[in-house]
């Protein structure tokens, strides 16, 4: 822990990213207390510009809804979808990568052809197809993003595992009588954690962006406010009140940048080679 803190103090951008991400997370968790009630309710006169009214710091939209309340509640959807989809994608990716890299041969070939196929279909087109088949909803969005984003992790883990398989460490473990599962999980996985975490942070960032695009197109969960649906709300107002579309976009950018920076921070902290 002290090592982590020491590294972070040197790396200001990573620290800033981590702090911002924690802050966005705190706002998301606290949204029901910060802004009780439905963020879809009208609270004031429509189209109040930001910084005009102290009670409504970010102004209101076409229906007089508080933009700040929308952002806070939208953060819940963005972060939930981002982290849940990434967790599922990384889990599938690590499993597929381990199986393909460890067993090689036919298992490897068939798993890699499936990976090729999923990677060949544009993730967003695949997500659209899944939404059309399953109907819109948070669960569909999470599944759609997870299905299209596990492939990168699978490839990296496969390459790492197949290179580790040939090393002395694994031979030594075998002599000690360890089984495949134990070697994979207790010996190899900890050693390849840092590229996996870099990838995981990229997957979270992409998942947040894909969720916003789906809900911008009106294909997210119709019952929930999300940053993408708020931007869609502002689309028709560019001429009269551009801030309605601009503000949620800035929230997405801040969150995604801080996810990327925080990913670097966690990687640096976990890298055992860097530890003295």
């Amino acid at each position: 822990m002290t090592h982590f803190a020491r590294r972070l103090r040197r790396d200001v951008p990573a620290l800033a990213g981590l702090v911002t991400l924690v802050l966005v997370g705190a706002i998301a968790l606290a949204a029901p207390w910060l802004y009780p009630g439905d963020p879809q309710d009208m609270v004031a006169r429509p189209l109040i510009w930001p910084f005009q009214d102290a009670a409504l710091p970010l102004g209101t939209d076409r229906l007089g809804r508080d933009l700040a309340a929308g952002l806070a509640h939208g953060a819940r959807v963005s972060l939930l979808v981002g982290f849940a989809a990434a967790a599922a994608a990384v889990l599938v990716g690590v499993t597929v990568g381990c199986l393909a890299g460890w067993f090689g041969g036919l298992v490897d070939d068939s798993l890699m052809r499936v990976t090729d196929a999923v990677q060949t279909v544009p993730g967003f087109v695949l997500a659209l197809a899944l939404v059309a088949v399953m109907g819109p909803g948070v669960g569909t969005v999470i599944l759609a993003i997870a299905v299209s984003s596990w492939t990168g992790t699978a490839r990296v883990v496969r390459a790492e595992v197949s290179s580790w398989r040939e090393r002395d460490l694994v031979a030594a473990c075998r002599v000690m009588g360890m089984g495949s599962g134990e070697i994979l999980i207790r010996q190899i996985l900890p050693n390849i954690a840092s590229p996996v975490i870099v990838l995981a942070s990229v997957v979270v960032a992409v998942a947040i962006l894909v969720e916003s695009a789906l809900s911008f197109l009106g294909l997210g969960d119709p019952a929930l406010v999300s940053w993408g649906s708020m931007i869609a709300e502002g689309r028709g107002l560019l001429r009269r009140a551009w801030f309605v579309a601009a503000v949620p976009g800035v929230a997405i950018i801040i969150t995604v940048v801080s996810v990327s920076l925080a990913g670097e921070a966690v990687t640096a902290a976990l890298d055992p080679r860097d530890r003295q």
Binding site: L209, S212, F216, I231, A245, A246, I252, I253, S260
Partner: peptide, 12 residues
Amino acid sequence: IYAMPSFWVGLM
């Protein structure tokens, strides 16, 4: 730039 949603960039 990497963090900007492309549809939002389009609107701006």
